[in-house]
Every structure is written in structure tokens, then in C-alpha cells.
Amino acid sequence: MPFPTTAFGIAAIVVLLVPGLTYGLVRRTLRGFRFDDLTIDARIAQALVVSVLLDAIYLAVGAAWIASVVHIEGNKVFVEEPGLLGLAVLAGAFAIPGLLSFVLNSPYRIRRRVPKAPRVVRPKKRKKQRAQSKYVIERTTYYEAVPTAWDKGATDPRGRAVRVTLPDGRMLGGFFGSGSYVSTYPEPRDLYLSHQYFVEADGTLGELIPGTAGVWLRISDDHIVEFFDPPDATGDDLTDNERTESNGE
């Protein structure tokens, strides 16, 4: 879809999409991805519904003020107070939808404090106690904004050894550290390991392969990817002289 270049087209995008997109972005951050968040079409449809609802409320509340600020004469649009109108657009497109989404989707809720059962203790000198509020803010649900388990596990920044079992049963081993790379949602899963290890018959990771410059793998559902604490000597721990000696062996 081509992006509009006229003032009317840009205004239409702001009015019909931006409030809903802001609402959805905050919701996904707080509650994680849902099934209907996986396609652009579904996100745009959600944004349109939310934006139309909010725009209707804005018109019902501030139609008179908008008419006094914005004047349309033929193909020309005149704005009397552009600064004030800009603040209104920021509030209507970002602040209000974001705050509304936070209130409706926040995992935190205000609940009445449950009194604890009294304990039988030895009498002591009473200390002055602070008055406790009748209400407390509690986290009632737990969501993760990361869309997939692969994104969560594979992007751990710690240096780790990796063993990948291929669909035919062969195993490859390597080190995921500085210089490595992993793709995340929505791109297909693939993995570049900066250093490759020999893999013994029992699956144990062996020595660093001499001259290794890394290995690239496309990860499908038939692959098994395992992460381990790195061996004592990883590619990042080798000095230039040690790497040169290893390559010469």
C-alpha cells in the first residue's frame, strides 16, 4: 500500500490508524502476542476498530472546539492555533490510546489488602507501627512480550555452547558469542555460530575445529537445538597466538 503524500492523506492515516496502532503496541508490550497479532492485516483491522471508536468519542466531546480551530475552504485548510492543535493530536493519537491500553491491559490490579492471621508471640515492648493502606497493588497475571520461545531462548546474550541435532541424526556443535547471530520473529529461524567444535560420537562437544570461521544453520521443526555452559576454552577466550597455533596443528 503506497504511503499518502498529500496533507489530507496523512491526516486520514493519523485519524484512522495511529490511535489504534498505539493502543495495540502498548497492549502487546503488556500482555504479549495473541494469535490475531501475527499478520499485518489483522493488526490494521484492530487499529481501525479502535481508532474509529476513539475518534467518535473525540468528536462527541470536542467537535465544537475542532470546528473553531480548523477551517476548510474549498481545497484549502486553515488552522488558527497550530500549536494547540498539535498538542491535541499528540494527546488523541498517542497519550490517550496508550493510557487506555495500559489501564485495560496492565497485569497490575488494585486489590483490598487481606489481613494476616494473628500470631501468638511473647509480649514485647510495642513499637509504633505505620498505618497500612487498605489497598495494595498486586501483579495478578504474567505475560511475555517476546513472541516465541525461540526468541526468548536463542537471544540470551551470554556466551554459550550450542549443539544442533540435524534431521538425519548428525550433530553439529559451536559457540554462540561475540560475532554470532540469530534471526527472530517474524523471520525464519536461522543461526550463525562464530566458532565450530568437533562433536564426539556420544554427543560431547570436543575441541575447537582448527581454522573455524563459524557455521550457519537454518533451523526447522526437525532440528533440536541445545544450549550449554561453554567449554573452558571458547573461541572468545583464545588469544591471537593460541588461535594461530591451533590453526597450524
Rank of each mutant, 00 (worst) to 15 (best):
V89A: 07
R158Y: 00
V121A: 12
Q196R: 15
R43Q: 14
A145V: 10
G203M: 01
D55N: 14
V199D: 07
L205K: 01
R130V: 09
S178T: 06
T234H: 01
A201N: 10
P19N: 00
I13W: 02
R111E: 15
Y185A: 01
A95H: 05
T140F: 06
V146N: 05
R189I: 02
V89P: 01
Y135E: 10
A145W: 07
G83Q: 02
W65H: 01
M171F: 01
L100Q: 04
L59K: 10
T204E: 15
V14M: 12
L21N: 02
T141V: 09
R158D: 08
T22G: 06
V18M: 05
P82K: 03
V49I: 14
T155R: 08
P115C: 05
L16C: 08
V18N: 02
K134A: 08
F33V: 10
A67N: 11
R113F: 05
F94K: 01
R27T: 05
V52K: 06
G173P: 06
G169L: 00
P82E: 00
L48I: 15
T141Q: 06
G98A: 15
G235T: 04
Y197M: 03
A64T: 11
T204A: 09
D229R: 15
Y23A: 06
T148P: 00
W216V: 03
K134Y: 03
G32P: 05
S101G: 01
V162E: 05
L100S: 12
S220I: 04
D232M: 03
L21M: 12
A42L: 07
D232A: 14
K76G: 08
E73S: 15
L53D: 09
H195A: 08
R130P: 02
G86D: 09
A11F: 13
A95N: 02
G177P: 04
G74M: 06
G177L: 04
A131E: 13
N105H: 05
V162D: 06
K127W: 07
